[in-house]
C-alpha cells in the first residue's frame, strides 16, 4: 500500500519533470520576433543603426535606453507604422511589410504617445478597439467591464476621454491594449505618468498574462527596477545601436556592477540626452517640421 503511494508519487514527479522538459520542445520553431540588420534614418540622421536580435515565444524582453536611443522608432518599424530603410523583420514568422494583416493580428501595442479618441467615451474607445481587433461580440462586453474595473475606470466609462486626467488616459490606453489577447504585446514606456499603484497593477497583470497565456512581451521603460522585476532578458540600446543583451544578472556580471542601474550607466555613459525624444516628442518634432517647411 505504502509502496504504491511512493511509487505513484515518484511517477507523478517523473511525469511532471517530463512535462516541464517537453514544453519548450513542443513549441513551434520560429521565434516570436526576429530582427536582422534593421535600419532607419531620417533625412541623413541614423536613428537606428543595423540592429539584430531575437525574442523567444513566451519571453518578456525589455528594451532599455536613454532618451532618443531609438526605442520608439524600433517599435514603430516592428508594428508596421514606419518602413525600415533596410533589414528583415519576422513576427511569428510573418514579414509585417509583406503580410501586414497576419502580422497585425498577432500583436497588440500600447503606444508611448496617446492614441485615444477624446471625442468618445472610455467605453466607446474600448468597444471600437474590440471591433477593430475582432473580439467576438459575446466576449467583448464582459472583457471590457473586467478591464475597466481592474484599471479603476468603470465608474467613468460614460465620460468623454478628453475629460480624463493624464494618468486615467494612460490606464485606459493600457486596458485597451489587453482587450484582445495578442500573442505578442508591445509596450512603449507603458508606466510613464502612472502612480506606483497602477504601475504595480500593470506589471502584475503582465506577469500573469505571460505565465497563463504565454504572451510574448516586448517593452521599453526608463525604470530599471521594473525591467529587472519583469523581464527575462534585457537589451540596452544607445544612439541607435544595441550595446548589450542578456539577463539582468549577466549584464551586471559583464560590467562588474551590483545593480542594473549601475550596469546601464556603465554601458551608456552618464551624459544627458536630448529631451525632445521624450513623451510628446512626436508633437515637438511635428512643430519643428512645420517650421522647417516654411
Amino acid at each position: 500500500m505504502l509502496a504504491v503511494v511512493i511509487f505513484s508519487r515518484r511517477k507523478w514527479r517523473i511525469i511532471q519533470a517530463a512535462f516541464r522538459r517537453q514544453q519548450p520542445k513542443s513549441m513551434p520553431p520560429s521565434p516570436a520576433i526576429q530582427v536582422e540588420n534593421l535600419t532607419k534614418s531620417f533625412n541623413g540622421f541614423t536613428a537606428v543603426k543595423p540592429i539584430s536580435f531575437q525574442v523567444e515565444r513566451g519571453e518578456i524582453f525589455a528594451f532599455l535606453g536613454p532618451n532618443g536611443a531609438g526605442k520608439t522608432t524600433t517599435i514603430k518599424m516592428l508594428t508596421t507604422l514606419l518602413r525600415p530603410n533596410d533589414g528583415k523583420i519576422l513576427l511569428d514568422g510573418f514579414d509585417p511589410w509583406q503580410h501586414s494583416r497576419e502580422a497585425r493580428q498577432r500583436f497588440g501595442i500600447v503606444f508611448q504617445d496617446p492614441s485615444l479618441d477624446g471625442e468618445q467615451t472610455a467605453y466607446e474607445n474600448m468597444e471600437l478597439h474590440g471591433i477593430l481587433y475582432h473580439v467576438p461580440r459575446q466576449e467583448r462586453a464582459p472583457r471590457i467591464e473586467a478591464l475597466l474595473k481592474q484599471f479603476e475606470l468603470w465608474e467613468r466609462r460614460k465620460d468623454y476621454v478628453k475629460t480624463f486626467s493624464g494618468g486615467m488616459k494612460r490606464r485606459l490606453e493600457i486596458a485597451r491594449g489587453f482587450l484582445h489577447t495578442p500573442g505578442i504585446l508591445f509596450l512603449d514606456e507603458p508606466t510613464l505618468g502612472l502612480d506606483p499603484q497602477s504601475r504595480n497593477q500593470l506589471w502584475t497583470h503582465i506577469k500573469t498574462l505571460n505565465q497563463q497565456e504565454q504572451t510574448t512581451v516586448f517593452l521599453t521603460t526608463h525604470y530599471m527596477d521594473e525591467a529587472e522585476r519583469v523581464a527575462h532578458r534585457i537589451a540596452i540600446i544607445d544612439h541607435g545601436a544595441l550595446v548589450a543583451i542578456g539577463t539582468a544578472a549577466e549584464l551586471k556580471t559583464r560590467t562588474g556592477t551590483d545593480s542594473l542601474e549601475a550596469a546601464f550607466l556603465a554601458l551608456t555613459g552618464t551624459s544627458l540626452r536630448d529631451e525632445s525624444a521624450n513623451a510628446g516628442g512626436d508633437q515637438l518634432r511635428r512643430f519643428a517640421k512645420m517650421w522647417q517647411k516654411r
Partner: peptide, 17 residues
C-alpha cells in the same frame, strides 16, 4: 486632428485592411 492627437495610430495598426 486624429494624426495630431494620435488616434490615427490606433486605427493604422489594427488587423483590418
Amino acid at each position: 486632428w486624429d494624426r495630431q492627437f494620435g488616434f490615427l495610430r490606433e486605427t493604422l495598426v489594427a488587423p483590418v485592411p
